[in-house]
């Protein structure tokens, strides 16, 4: 199947998810819509508890028992995967859509050799007919992520943090997925290792023409590796658009606040904006625009009614008072000495 860039490999329509808890229903994801074309990199950013990881878990159909899908469809290659049975979904998971987990140490079983774990993933999905072919494939994957294939027969504890993260990436790539979800892939790593892993991942994505979703709270990482960015707040996608456009001129005050509060080593030293308050309780989210209690521009209409969608080119935001197209960031000091 050859999908042109116009045909999205992944389409999420009106996705809403709740968690049933003792305290009440947590409205973790609400009316999330986005598309991902082949070869495209999307970043989902937001504070913790904003629903980023819940969206990822929906896409992987890895939901805890108390999760309840309220509405929505997730089309992977044109097939809605949400109604599929557990057996059917297994064909999709890892072969069409795979995940690079946040905590690499937890994703690897400490009692098995790293290579063996990837081989098993391949065998479980019947991608390679024989063991030796599977091992050969894993060696290839190791080379691809920058690991020495000789390390296949080592145990996870013999790996450094960066090597483990690479192994987890190799595992995600094992069955040639069309979409990869990277949930905070470099959060626990030091900057130099983070930089290498991100470059590696970016290179692989471009070479294999894969679609990738980066989930991160670190907007600097997302700025560098993605083509599109979705900003989530209180379970909703509040702004979405080409990364460059969103960073140049965010529409939503939340996006602007998030960016304004992020320190940078490049450019002039700005005063960091205080984003006061806490994210809302999703059991009883605020009426109207969920961001209104923390928003500097909030008016009565924001408190009462769900904000409309405002568009500017490819970029959109749900806001009553979208920001003007003023530069949010000073031009970066690109020629840094």
């Amino acid at each position: 199947m050859t999908a042109s860039a116009a045909v999205p490999v992944l389409r999420v329509v009106d996705l809403s998810l709740r968690y049933l808890t003792r305290g009440g229903e947590v409205k973790a994801v609400q009316d999330v819509n986005f598309e991902l074309a082949q070869g495209e990199a999307l970043g989902l950013v937001g504070e913790s508890g904003c629903g980023k990881t819940s969206v990822a878990n929906c896409l992987m159909r890895l939901l805890p028992d108390n999760a309840q899908l309220v509405a929505g469809q997730v089309f992977l290659d044109g097939q809605d995967i949400l109604p599929l049975s557990e057996d059917q979904i297994r064909e999709y998971r890892w072969q069409r859509i795979a995940m690079v987990f946040q905590a690499a140490m937890n994703a690897l079983d400490p009692v098995y050799k790293v290579g063996q774990q990837v081989v098993e993933a391949i065998e479980a999905h019947g991608v390679e007919p024989t063991l030796s072919l599977a091992r050969e494939r894993v060696a290839g994957l190791f080379r691809m992520v920058g690991l020495d294939p000789a390390l296949m027969d080592r145990y996870p504890h013999e790996f450094s943090g960066g090597m483990r993260q690479r192994a987890v990436i190799a595992m995600a790539l094992a069955c040639d997925p069309r979409v990869i979800i990277a949930d905070e892939p470099t959060t626990a790593l030091d900057v130099i290792v983070q930089d290498r892993i991100l470059r590696e991942l970016k290179g692989i994505q471009q070479r294999l023409h894969m679609a990738i979703i980066y989930i991160s709270h670190d907007i600097a990482v997302v700025a560098e590796v993605t083509d599109r960015i979705g900003v989530m707040y209180a379970g909703r996608l509040v702004e979405y658009g080409p990364t460059a456009a969103v960073f140049r001129a965010p529409l939503h005050p939340y996006t602007a606040a998030l960016m304004g509060s992020f320190p940078s080593i490049a450019g002039e030293k700005r005063v960091l904006a205080n984003l006061s308050g806490e994210p809302p309780n999703l059991i009883d989210p605020p009426s109207g625009c969920p961001f209104h209690p923390r928003c500097l521009h909030a008016t009565d209409v924001c408190r009462q009614e769900i904000p409309p969608r405002v568009e500017r080119g490819d970029q959109w935001a749900d806001c009553w008072h979208p920001l003007e197209a003023a530069p949010a960031l000073e031009p970066a000091d690109n020629g840094g000495t």
Partner: peptide, 8 residues
């Protein structure tokens, strides 16, 4: 160190 500016 990543920089929060896609054009950098």
């Amino acid at each position: 160190v990543p920089v929060p500016n896609p054009e950098y």
